[in-house]
Amino acid sequence: MILSVPLVVALVVSGALAGLLGALVGIGGGLIVVPVLVLGFGVDIKIAIASSLIAVVASSTASGSVYVGKGLTNLRLGMLLEVATTFGGITGGLIAVYVSPTVISALFAVLMIVTCVLILCTKDPVKKTAVSESLATVETAKETIGKLSGSYYDPYLKEEIQYDVQNVPLGSFVSFFAGVLSGLLGVGGGFIKVPAMALGMKVPMKVAAATSNLMIGVTAISSLFVYFARGYVQPIIAAPVALGVVGGALYGTTLAQKISPKLLRKMFAAILVIVAVQMVLKSLGVSVGK
């Protein structure tokens, strides 16, 4: 595939849009990057997934460094769940090599519809997870050696929140599943891990979002290495997308405080439905443009 300078710029802009939208609605950019590359640029789905995994690592590293600095990430909880999620990522990466692009496209469409429903049903996730506005710092956050429990200062409630972690087997199971999806479809899986931690493991929402954010980097690389070693990484496509995603994600964390989350979620859900329908049509062999 021969690219032109305008096409490279278009890849950067697409990545920025994915990073921006991802940061605004609190999910990784993978759900947007894969369909944009496949439908918009005619990229093979496995190369698109490898590019998306690189974008997910970039996004996780960029926002993860902010959240770790603010003391909201529970490093020990993240590491514990990473055991399941990395083995899941390897499983997904290995399965993906043997699954036809048609099946992967169809699975992706289903995943987008599920995410769309979750986004519309979740009460104001952006406001609850807008950790960038938090005044929490490294010094105010605490983790106890040998335990999963922790605490952080919540400026909204103006108090220190202490929490324990429950239902670790459930969290591990969900993390494994999220890892499989990551390897198979090139998504971060944060939209599954955050509810699992917040609802299943009784972790505060802000901590769940920040911890998931750090985790998706490790989840993504467990399958990225498989794709990278097998030659599915095409840096000339992946690099502009990754550069755009980082810029978009960083801008999105500041813009999140100025836009109505409700309107944004509805817009995002509409985009997901349109793209999901196109992915289904593509998997059925119906032409959807390029």
């Binding site: 690219l3 970039a58 590293t61 960029a62 840096p235 000339i236 550069l243």
Partner: peptide, 30 residues
């Protein structure tokens, strides 16, 4: 890690564009 990788990617991208070599080539880790 983020800064180093982004700088390497940007320089690589600029060199490729400057040389007119913007063909998508698979690059395997090994």
């Amino acid at each position: 890690g983020l800064i180093v990788s982004m700088v390497l990617m940007t320089i690589g991208l600029v060199i490729n564009i400057n040389n007119g070599h913007i063909e998508s080539v698979p690059v395997a880790m090994f």
